[in-house]
Simulated assay, not measured.
Amino acid sequence: MNTILPFKIFEAENSNLPTSIFGGGSSGIRDWDNLKYPTMLDINKNLSAEFWNEDEVKLGKDIEQYNSKLTEAEKYVFNTITGMLNQLDSHATDFNMFLSYMVTDPSIRSNIALINYFENLHNRSYQYLTSTMLNDQQKREAFEEVKRIPVLLERNKLVLDKIQTFLDTVVDYVVNKKQIDNNFLQASFEGLLAYQNLEGLFFTGGFVYFHSLARDQKMMGSNNLICMIKTDEVQHSEFYGTLIRSIMGENPQLNTTENQQYAVYFIKDCVEKEKAWAKYIFKDIETLSMKEYMNYIEYLANLIARNAGIQEPYPENQEIKSRWIVTYGSKKRDKNDSKQIVTRTDFLQTDAINYEHSSGEDYDY
């Protein structure tokens, strides 16, 4: 590998067909009929099919239920989980920006750009939930609270340290114009694996609380919005699993017993940190069984590993044992502009809930 980073926006002497994901050659022109990884076109189409706006989901009834039906413990968890999800999506936006800067395959950069759009949309959506239910001071407190909870900080640190190492590595290689080498590839592998756990474990696990409220016929609008976000995040997790497999395929020096063992141990460590966080945050929540949640987290860990081509850490946990997570964790969209009802299910889901698309106005107060 001899490409000096950052990549050039146009290199006429190179083929439109990129040679590799990192440190490769490419003209910079996107020819969707001439891709190194044709699956990137399918991913691009699937991502593009999911555009929506947060205020399409009306929350008038949720405001009433938040004030009259939720216990103080449920309100606290609603606020804190929303703030936590907003924090993680904030980090996701920055990770994707740095990653895209290093990728020399234009089709992959295009997909990362789409994913980053949705991460920003998700940030707005969490803001929409809190700004609708809370006054300004309460909302700010919810977003500040996640910076003060020790068990949450410890959980997040596990993945954020690896992501920060990747970001620091990008800066080092760009500023000093270093060539791609095994040190960069290793930092990328570990950073992407950490990001996979942020997307597929910490995000998706946090969504379960909203599903549990919906099962109790509470906050249905909020859960519908969360299900729309969840569909996006599932697509992102699948994309990054594909990216990890592709990088490992291009760079067989990464595909070692040590890295496979590291990946399994890292995922298990993330699971244990998530379980500790769940015991703290859900301790006073009657709509959510801790045993069910623990089983679900292990199931999600297997999906992360499977997507990335890694040995599953919990081979005995092959299916969702709590079917209500499927029932209340899926969505059904009605696109008025095409007069079609479109039902989308991800690899976690077989059922769907109804979602009525309507023109959005301002936030509901």
Rank of each mutant, 00 (worst) to 15 (best):
M1T: 14
I4T: 13
L5K: 03
K8D: 07
A12M: 08
E13R: 13
E13N: 11
S20L: 03
I21H: 02
S27E: 04
I29D: 11
R30Y: 14
D33A: 09
L35D: 02
L35K: 02
K36F: 12
D42R: 09
N44F: 11
K45P: 00
S48Y: 07
A49D: 12
E50V: 15
I63E: 02
N67Y: 12
N67H: 12
S68R: 00
L70Y: 03
A73C: 01
E74V: 01
Y76A: 12
I81K: 03
I81E: 00
G83Q: 04
L85G: 02
D89T: 07
F95P: 07
F98H: 01
L99W: 11
L99P: 01
S100E: 06
M102D: 09
T104L: 05
P106Q: 06
I112Q: 01
A113L: 08
N116T: 09
H122E: 00
H122Y: 11
N123M: 13
S125E: 03
Y126W: 11
Q127S: 14
T130A: 09
S131P: 01
Q137M: 08
R140D: 08
R148H: 15
L152Q: 10
L153T: 09
E154T: 00
E154C: 03
V159Y: 04
I163G: 01
D168H: 08
D168N: 13
T169S: 09
T169V: 10
Y173W: 05
V174L: 13
V174M: 10
Q179N: 13
Q179C: 06
D181V: 09
F184R: 00
Q186V: 14
Q186C: 00
A187L: 09
L192V: 06
N197L: 08
E199V: 10
F210A: 06
S212A: 14
M219H: 02
M220H: 05
G221D: 05
L225K: 06
C227N: 15
I229P: 03
I229G: 01
D232L: 10
H236A: 05
H236P: 02
Y240S: 05
I247L: 12
N251W: 11
N251K: 01
P252I: 15
Q253E: 08
N255F: 15
T256N: 04
Y265W: 07
F266C: 05
C270N: 07
E272S: 02
A278I: 04
T287D: 00
S289L: 04
N295T: 03
E298T: 11
L300Q: 07
N302W: 14
A308L: 10
I310M: 11
Q311L: 15
P313E: 05
Y314F: 15
K321S: 07
R323K: 11
D334L: 15
K335M: 10
N336Y: 13
Q340S: 06
I341C: 03
V342Y: 08
T343P: 01
D346F: 11
D346C: 08
L348T: 09
L348Y: 07
I353C: 10
S358M: 12
E361L: 15
Y363A: 11
Y365C: 05
